[in-house]
C-alpha cells in the first residue's frame, strides 16, 4: 500500500437553505494517503478548509449507517470508500439521491423513519414467553433464514438506488421491506399477518420493477431485492388465496 501523501480534488455539493437558492458544487484540494476514506477527506475539509460543511458520521467503520452519500454518482458509505480508488480523477460527493436535502450532504430522513415505525419491526409472539422459561430454541438453520435481512444498518443506500422510490416515495422501499422479511422469517415471530397488509398495499412490493440495483449497492449484503421479490410472491399467494379459501384460512 502506498503510504506517501498525494493531493486529490474533492468536489462537494453545498446547500445551506438559509442562504443558498439552489445547491452548488465547491472544490477542495485534499492531501491524502492510501488508507484514507472519503469520510476522512471530508473531515479534513471541515477541520482545515471549510468549517461550515455539514455531513453525518460517527462510527467510521461501516456499521452505524450515518454516512451514506452519492460518491461519483453511486450511493456509498463515505467511511467505507477510499480516496485512492478515484485518484487522480476528481471525486464528486453529493447528498443521497431521492431524499430532500436538509443541508449540504445531510438528507431529511423522516420518511424512512416513519416507514420503519409502520412495519412493526419487533417480535410479535402468539403467547409471550416468560423469562423463566429461558430462550426460545432456534437452530442455526432457522437463524440463517433471516440473519442476512437482520444485518440492515438503515444506511438508505438502497433507497438512493431504487428507481421506483425515486418516482414515488410512497413505495415502502427495499430497506424496510428487508426488515419486514427479517421478522416474518424469524421462528420466534407470529406477526406476519399484521405486517402483510403493508406489503399488499398499493405502495407495497408490486411497485418493484426488479431492477436489483438496491442489492448491488447494499454495503451489508442484505440483498433487499430478494426480500422484495419473495414478498411479492408471498403477497401474490395471499392475494390469490383470498379468493379460493374461506376468509383467513390462507395464513
Amino acid at each position: 500500500m502506498n503510504t506517501s501523501e498525494r493531493m486529490i480534488t474533492m468536489e462537494v455539493l453545498r446547500y445551506r437553505p438559509e442562504q443558498d437558492e439552489t445547491p452548488f458544487f465547491q472544490q477542495f484540494l485534499v492531501p491524502f494517503t492510501d488508507d484514507m476514506s472519503v469520510l476522512q477527506g471530508l473531515q479534513y475539509i471541515k477541520d482545515e478548509l471549510e468549517g461550515s460543511l455539514s455531513f453525518r458520521w460517527s462510527c467510521r467503520m461501516a456499521i452505524c449507517g450515518s454516512c451514506g452519500m452519492m460518491i461519483n454518482g453511486v450511493p456509498k458509505l463515505a467511511c467505507h470508500t477510499f480516496l485512492r480508488d478515484t485518484y487522480p480523477n476528481t471525486l464528486r460527493v453529493e447528498a443521497l439521491a431521492h431524499f430532500p436535502i436538509e443541508r449540504d450532504l445531510v438528507i431529511v430522513m423522516d420518511d424512512f423513519m416513519a416507514k420503519l415505525e409502520s412495519i412493526r419491526p419487533y417480535i410479535i409472539a402468539d403467547t409471550p414467553r416468560a423469562l423463566s422459561e429461558g430462550e426460545y430454541l432456534q437452530t442455526p438453520a432457522q437463524l440463517d433464514l433471516y440473519e442476512q435481512f437482520s444485518s440492515c444498518i438503515n444506511c438508505l443506500l438502497c433507497y438512493a438506488a431504487c428507481p421506483q422510490y425515486g418516482l414515488n416515495s410512497k413505495f415502502i422501499g427495499p430497506g424496510a421491506m428487508a426488515l419486514v422479511h427479517r421478522y416474518n422469517l424469524d421462528s420466534r415471530d407470529s406477526g406476519s399477518a399484521q405486517r402483510m397488509p403493508l406489503v399488499h398495499a398499493e405502495e407495497g412490493v408490486f411497485n418493484c420493477t426488479a431492477v436489483g440495483y438496491c442489492s448491488q449497492v447494499c454495503p451489508k449484503k442484505v440483498d433487499p431485492a430478494n426480500a422484495v421479490n419473495i414478498n411479492k410472491t408471498e403477497s401474490a399467494k395471499d392475494y390469490f388465496l383470498r379468493f379460493v379459501t374461506p376468509k383467513g384460512a390462507g395464513k
Binding site: I123, E135, L137, Q138, P140, Y146, R188
Partner: peptide
C-alpha cells in the same frame, strides 16, 4: 433474546 436479538446458536438451538 425474547425481543428478537439474533444471538448465535449451538446446533441444538
Amino acid at each position: 433474546e425474547h425481543w428478537g436479538c439474533p444471538w448465535s446458536r449451538k446446533p441444538d438451538g
